[in-house]
Each structure stands twice: as C-alpha cells, then as structure tokens.
C-alpha cells in the first residue's frame, strides 16, 4: 500500500509534466488518500501542493487556493519554513489570478517576511516584484514604487539583468 502511494505520486507528476492535468489530479487524489491512511503528513503536504499546481493549469483557481491553504497548514505543522514560504508565494499568485489583490498582498507579505528570515534574496526579490504589481493593480502607486525600488536593488545585487 505504501508503494502504491508513492507510485500514484510519481504517476501524478508524470501526467502533470505531460500536460494531462485532469489525470494528474486523479492520481494525486489517490496519493492523498493513501498518505492520510498512513498519517504521512509530509506526503499529504506534497499531494496538496501537486493538486494545487494542477488546478492552476485547469483554470480552477479557487480550488487551487484551497489546496495551497492545506499545504500551508501542513508546512506550518511540519515546521518547514521554506515550504511555508513557497505556499504563501503560490497563494499570492493564485489570488492575483483571481484578481483579489488585497489577499494577494497578504500572502506576498507573509512570503517576504519568511524570505528575509531565511536570507533568501531571490525569494525576497520575487516577493517585492509581486507586491509592486499588486499595489499597482490597486492604484497604490507610492507602495508600488517602494517595492519596485526594493526589487531593483535586489536584482542588481543578485545580478539579474532581466
């Protein structure tokens, strides 16, 4: 049964990489069921993240957000700060797709704080870029400028000419 769980996970990932997102969802749902049977929260966390990603490409952004929220809860329970940051970043981008910029800002700020704690300058730069865009969408131009300047500073530091 444990091997079946891992295999469903691998199958889901392969279907995802092939662009078969509906089949990826079916496989990852099976993986999730088996992870729950075993009380394997790390596997459960991976399944929720993979499901969230597949729902993004199915255009089901609300469903993706719910899966990323479960990913975030589990990342916190497992005390995995890097995964917590990634889940916040995914939620920020998903709420941007949903044009809910206030919620997007909440999650991008959470991502920014963790990136700073982890001394992850690339993550920090992405958070500032995202925050600048969300504030622009809301017409908060002063805030947008602040984050654009931070993004520029970090991009120069890490040598990201793009």
């Amino acid at each position: 049964r444990a091997a079946q769980g891992r295999t469903y996970g691998n199958l889901g990932n392969t279907q995802y990489l092939l662009g078969n997102f509906q089949n990826a969802v079916l496989a990852h749902e099976q993986r999730l069921l088996i992870a729950k049977e075993f009380g394997d929260r790390a596997a459960e966390r991976r399944a929720y993240c993979n499901l969230g990603n597949a729902y993004i490409f199915l255009g089901q952004f609300e469903v993706a957000a719910e899966h990323y929220k479960r990913t975030l809860q589990l990342a916190r329970q497992l005390r995995d700060r890097a995964v917590e940051a990634q889940a916040c970043y995914s939620l920020g981008n998903t709420y941007t797709l949903l044009q809910d910029y206030e919620r997007a800002i909440d999650y991008h700020l959470k991502h920014l704080v963790i990136a700073q704690d982890l001394r992850d300058r690339i993550g920090e730069g992405r958070a500032c870029w995202s925050l600048g865009n969300a504030h622009t969408a809301l017409g908060n131009h002063e805030q947008a400028l602040h984050f654009a300047e931070k993004h520029l500073e970090i991009s120069k530091e890490i040598g990201d000419r793009n």
Binding site: R6, G9, N10, N13, Y16, L17, A43, R45, R46, A47, C49, N50, N53, I56, F57, Y89, S90, N93, T96, L97, L98, Q99, Y101, R126, W129, S130, N133, T136, A137, L138, G139
Partner: peptide, 26 residues
C-alpha cells in the same frame, strides 16, 4: 479598483512558467 487583468501580471506569468515544470517528488 481591479484595473489590471491578472494574466497580464508579469510576475504571475513568470511563476506559472516555473510552475509548469515543478513537481513535489516522492
């Protein structure tokens, strides 16, 4: 105040491009 369509947000586009190749491996 939702003036900008999300799909036109370059940071989101970049995230989706990366996401397309990202899987949580067993």
């Amino acid at each position: 105040a939702k003036r900008m369509h999300a799909i036109q947000v370059d940071s989101v586009q970049r995230w989706m491009e990366d996401l397309r190749h990202m899987t949580e491996v067993e």
